[in-house]
Amino acid sequence: MTDIIIHCAVALLFPPLLLGVIGKTKAVFAGRVGAPYFQPYYDLIKLFRKGSVFSDTTTWVFRAGPVVTLSAILIAVLLIPLGRHAAPLSFSGDLVLFTYLFGLSRFFTTIAALDTGSSFEGMGAAREVTFSCLAEPTLFFALITLARLSKSLSLSTILTHATSATWFASGASMLLLVAALFITLLAENSRIPFDDPNTHLELTMIHEVMVLDHSGPAFGMILYGAALKLFVLGAVFINVALPVSTGIALADWVIFIAGMLVLAVVIGTVESVMARLRMVRIPQLLVGATILSAFAMMLVLR
């Protein structure tokens, strides 16, 4: 019961901090002081208090978009195990629901973008659905590989099964999986090298351009949803990459949170040292990730 409460509390409160840490890391690399760690929280609070501007062309779909997207990701949060503890909502076959919830959220984000009738947002929506479609098989190859290692169909077992022993036994395949999952994590969360929210041109963005017309609380929900999504996929990654289990509940939570913070620093480092890829290169990298995870599966079968 305590674990469920901690799970919900961490999942609801912690995600924006990741964005803060990423921002701080990038600032350090650039030699700036940077915004405070808690800046995303202040942004969110401010956004929820702001008024909204609605485009004349929009309908209820535009308003429903952020609501459904956020709800779908919140359900996904309930399915994912955090800090080596089973998820609050865990059942056999939940991994399929988990990935399809992201599909649902993507559907609504993109139709909300199309509702504005803006060519920029249409462009962003087209990119988002195309790239995510290429990232999807990767996730399934990875999940099948992990499912085979853990002999289970439930995310809670699949993701908490990996231990340091697993790494010794099938290190090569775990390494490939970690690489593939990291690429997917960056792609799904629209980070560099796939997308750069800080470009000055709408033409070159993916996620940010889709939400140009959202304002006020709706934009707050989108920002929060994006942080949650980064958190959820980051948790999948951390569970595979850092399979440390101490057996002490509190210590596991601390290790998990520390791992997530390190992940945020790593993402920030990647963003600082790399440039965004050209749009035509993105599919190649995504297909490359799929092939990596397919290799991981092959190695496990051997």
Binding site: F48, R49, K50, G51, S52, V53, F54, S55, D56, T57, R63, P66, V67, T116, G117, S118, F120, L212, D213, G216, P217, A218, M221
Partner: peptide, 16 residues
């Protein structure tokens, strides 16, 4: 969200 919208100021405009 809808309750929040009702309480906060809102304006209409053309798409960005």
């Amino acid at each position: 969200y809808l309750r929040r919208l009702r309480r906060l100021p809102r304006s209409q405009g053309s798409t960005w």
